Lab assay of single mutants.
Amino acid sequence: MDSLVVLVLCLSCLLLLSLWRQSSGRGKLPPGPTPLPVIGNILQIGIKDISKSLTNLSKVYGPVFTLYFGLKPIVVLHGYEAVKEALIDLGEEFSGRGIFPLAERANRGFGIVFSNGKKWKEIRRFSLMTLRNFGMGKRSIEDRVQEEARCLVEELRKTKASPCDPTFILGCAPCNVICSIIFHKRFDYKDQQFLNLMEKLNENIKILSSPWIQICNNFSPIIDYFPGTHNKLLKNVAFMKSYILEKVKEHQESMDMNNPQDFIDCFLMKMEKEKHNQPSEFTIESLENTAVDLFGAGTETTSTTLRYALLLLLKHPEVTAKVQEEIERVIGRNRSPCMQDRSHMPYTDAVVHEVQRYIDLLPTSLPHAVTCDIKFRNYLIPKGTTILISLTSVLHDNKEFPNPEMFDPHHFLDEGGNFKKSKYFMPFSAGKRICVGEALAGMELFLFLTSILQNFNLKSLVDPKNLDTTPVVNGFASVPPFYQLCFIPV
Rank of each mutant, 00 (worst) to 15 (best):
P404R: 02
G96S: 12
T364Q: 15
K235Q: 14
E93N: 14
F226D: 03
L467P: 01
G296C: 13
I327P: 00
M345C: 06
W120L: 03
E288T: 15
W20F: 15
P402C: 11
R97P: 06
V292A: 11
A161Q: 13
I74Q: 03
S53W: 06
I389V: 07
S162Q: 15
H396V: 05
H353R: 04
G431R: 09
T34Q: 15
H316W: 08
M443Q: 11
S209M: 08
R125D: 13
A321E: 14
I389S: 03
G70D: 03
H353L: 02
I244Q: 07
P279G: 15
I387V: 15
S336L: 12
A106R: 09
P37T: 03
G431D: 04
D468W: 04
S422D: 05
R26F: 15
D256T: 09
A321S: 14
V323Q: 01
I215N: 02
L102R: 09
H230A: 08
F65E: 01
V479L: 15
T229E: 13
T229A: 11
N231C: 10
D349E: 12
P211L: 07
R139Y: 11
D373P: 02
T305A: 14
L458A: 01
E300H: 12
H276F: 13
V462H: 11
S95V: 05
L195W: 05
C172M: 13
V113G: 12
P63Y: 02
P464Y: 08
V351M: 06
Q192G: 09
G384Q: 05
Y358S: 04
R357K: 00
V113F: 14
P346T: 04
F282R: 03
E154W: 05
V394R: 11
C435G: 04
H396K: 11
D143W: 04
G91I: 03
Q356W: 15
L4S: 05
H316L: 03
D468M: 06
F428S: 04
S58F: 03
G298A: 14
E154M: 09
K249E: 07
Y189C: 03
F425S: 08
L361T: 11
E354S: 02
L485D: 00
S24R: 14
R97I: 07
D468Q: 15
N455E: 14
E415R: 08
S390E: 02
D143F: 07
P227V: 11
F448I: 04
E300V: 12
F110M: 15
S115F: 07
M269C: 14
F282A: 05
L43C: 13
E199I: 13
K52Q: 11
F282M: 05
K247P: 00
Q22M: 10
T469A: 15
G332F: 02
Q261K: 15
N133P: 14
E354R: 00
S365N: 09
V462I: 12
I169E: 03
P464A: 09
I223G: 07
F407L: 01
I387S: 01
L9G: 14
F482R: 14
A297L: 10
Y358E: 00
N259K: 09
G27F: 13
P63M: 04
Y61C: 02
K315E: 02
N217T: 10
R139A: 12
C266I: 06
N231A: 11
M426A: 06
N259E: 10
S303G: 11
S3T: 15
P480V: 07
S303N: 05
S460V: 02
I169P: 06
T386C: 12
F428Y: 15
G384M: 05
D188C: 11
E203A: 08
E438F: 06
T305M: 14
Q356G: 04
L67E: 01
E281A: 11
I123N: 06
P37L: 04
F487R: 00
H396S: 09
E148R: 00
C372H: 15
K118V: 10
I264H: 03
K249P: 02
R108S: 08
V177G: 00
D414R: 02
K84R: 12
G117A: 10
F226N: 03
R105S: 07
P402F: 08
P163E: 06
S478E: 04
L87C: 10
N378Q: 13
R132V: 12
F267R: 03
E92N: 11
I141P: 02
C172G: 07
N107Y: 13
V473R: 15
F126P: 05
E85Q: 08
K383R: 06
V473A: 11
L447Y: 07
N218P: 11
M443D: 02
M240R: 01
F407E: 02
T371L: 09
C266R: 14
G296F: 15
P37S: 05
V351Q: 00
M198P: 01
C10M: 14
S286L: 11
L54N: 00
P227G: 09
Y483D: 01
L67W: 06
I452E: 00
V351D: 00
L467S: 02
L54A: 04
R125F: 12
T167A: 14
S429A: 10
T34R: 12
G437T: 07
W20L: 10
E326F: 00
Y225W: 10
E415G: 11
G228S: 08
V153C: 11
L152T: 01
L445N: 05
N258P: 06
T304L: 15
N378T: 07
T290R: 03
K206S: 14
L440D: 01
A161N: 07
S58L: 01
C179S: 15
L15R: 02
G62V: 01
L306D: 00
I141G: 02
Q324D: 04
D341L: 05
V323A: 09
G25S: 13
D256F: 07
D2K: 02
I452L: 05
Q146P: 01
E300P: 13
L128Y: 10
L43K: 06
G70F: 05
R144S: 08
L15A: 09
V330C: 09
G27I: 15
F226M: 11
C175D: 00
S220K: 15
G46A: 09
H230N: 07
S12E: 01
R342V: 11
F295H: 00
N334L: 11
T320A: 15
L17V: 13
R186A: 02
L90T: 06
V462S: 07
P427R: 13
I42W: 11
V5T: 15
H368V: 04
I50C: 12
V5I: 06
F412V: 01
K119R: 10
